[in-house]
Design a protein around this nucleic acid. Sequence first.
DNA 1: GCCATTGATGCGCACAACGCATGGAAAGAT
DNA 2: ATCTTTCCATGCGTTGTGCGCATCAATGGC
Lengths: 306, 306
Amino acid sequence: MESTLRQLTAYAAVARAASFTAAARQLHVSQSSLSRAVADLERELGAQLLERDTRNVQLTAAGVEALRIAEQIVNAHRSGMKELQRFLLGESGAVVVATLPSVAAVLLPQVISGFRSRRPEVAIQILDGLERSVLDRVLSGDADFAITTGEPSGRLEHRPLVRDRFVAVLPQEHPLAARTEVAWEDLAREPFLAVGRESSVRRLTDAAFAQIDAPAVPAAEAGSVATVGGLVAAGLGVSALPALVLPLLGTGPLVHRPLTDPVVDRRLDIALRERRPLPLAAQRFLETLEEFRTQQRDLPPGVSWA
Amino acid sequence: MESTLRQLTAYAAVARAASFTAAARQLHVSQSSLSRAVADLERELGAQLLERDTRNVQLTAAGVEALRIAEQIVNAHRSGMKELQRFLLGESGAVVVATLPSVAAVLLPQVISGFRSRRPEVAIQILDGLERSVLDRVLSGDADFAITTGEPSGRLEHRPLVRDRFVAVLPQEHPLAARTEVAWEDLAREPFLAVGRESSVRRLTDAAFAQIDAPAVPAAEAGSVATVGGLVAAGLGVSALPALVLPLLGTGPLVHRPLTDPVVDRRLDIALRERRPLPLAAQRFLETLEEFRTQQRDLPPGVSWA
DNA sequence: GCCATTGATGCGCACAACGCATGGAAAGAT
DNA sequence: ATCTTTCCATGCGTTGTGCGCATCAATGGC
């Protein structure tokens, strides 16, 4: 039982047209080709499917059944290939992006909304986590790409996406809140509330304090920026956070001021596996992102396209 | 988009096994063959499906999608061909038999029951009608074969099946009912209740009366034998019917006696189109019928295997 | 009786598919 | 570090499949 698609297609066309010549015209092949194909199919099946009279072609009982089944098979092939084609063209499937919670909450929503309006059938999955796990997701192939911080490492290619400036986060009534800008130096004199050591933010604040030779001993540290926000709002100290995460701080009595001397910003990159074919749906997503960048679409204050 | 089943099968095997060599062993082809087949498929699709590392083979996102779809298509082919095979082997499908109501009601039930116990998935359709329409059903291809009376005509091949002897049908209290046999001569002296002119029975009774030079003027005629039975039971006259139809006469006060001088029987044949491949399911049905005949299975009195 | 049309078939060509042998790369063994 | 094994890719020659062209036989319409 080894009948080819070609034979089934040929048979289906002939049976539907009830004519070899007509079917040959439709399929753009010679009549002889069809004649052979059908004859071969019949020989392999060991059954006559068509009743040929020099003038007419009609189906036997087996032929009726065979036509039904042949069309089933040919359709399965056609629709399957079409479905795959759509997937390969990035018109269906899923984009999996690994990223930091702040990016997921602040930057991505507008991009996703823009992308989905163009490719409504492409599902989008966000894997949010800290820097390390985000990169692992990409390396392991769980995610198509990441939007995250961190040095280009291993087999990942990085493309700069946005710059995210650090700002001082202060209790509303804090003296420094009176200024339009705050220097790291000033901040260093206050009790500092840091985020956890695994956070990408922490490394940068430590580095900033090191740069101005300030002691880098936080008064307290917390895992999530929301917690840090709470602590600051409660008046326990001040903090320095990238502008992008500010929306995650909640609605407490906080203010934020640009940090200077030095201006510090973290760079968020698109990270993808080198030499790895990116699924087209993911490519399209990145293109949307790129458009947003070239159009300089609105970003929260302190965040700018790279 | 012209990927062959061969390519899809090859790809599915390789993708499932995550190895060209292992898949090659399973499919009993050379590894090089698979390597090429998959490479060709990828080229045609314009997308990389497998990530080859000299040590491992793993699927890309497109590869996962392609595997799902390839298996879908290959399965559709496999199960379709299997289904067709079953049909061709007479293990599924339908047998359509055209026949007279009496055969349908009396002779067929036991045969069908025997056949269905062996081929439970083969449906059986009975087209019952009068002699003419029964033959037409076969000629037009609506039915696979017929069990009916009538002369071999046109493009039909006839195979004798049973002989069905005519018996006198009498009111229970009729004088002739006292005899063990009745001659046509005797019957001719009574008011005769005939069946309609389109019935195959009518032609034979007319012929019998002609043979003994009796006037063939029925006292009344009715379309169905059941009606004739009712008329006889009501004492309006007598009739002559083939033994096979007796069960159709209902339970009225009737008796029947073998008719002699001459003994008349109608022959019921299997009629099938000449030079026409009979669907295997139908062949199997006829074989069952043939078995019943060689085993001389019980038939109503007056009916005997030909 | 003649012509047009239909499906089957002989023939030759092109190429698709295969196996064999081999190459190169990398993991595991020594 | 070197050797061996294992894996996939590829060049090569052979075989067979698929195709179109030309042609044949049968048959219905004129």
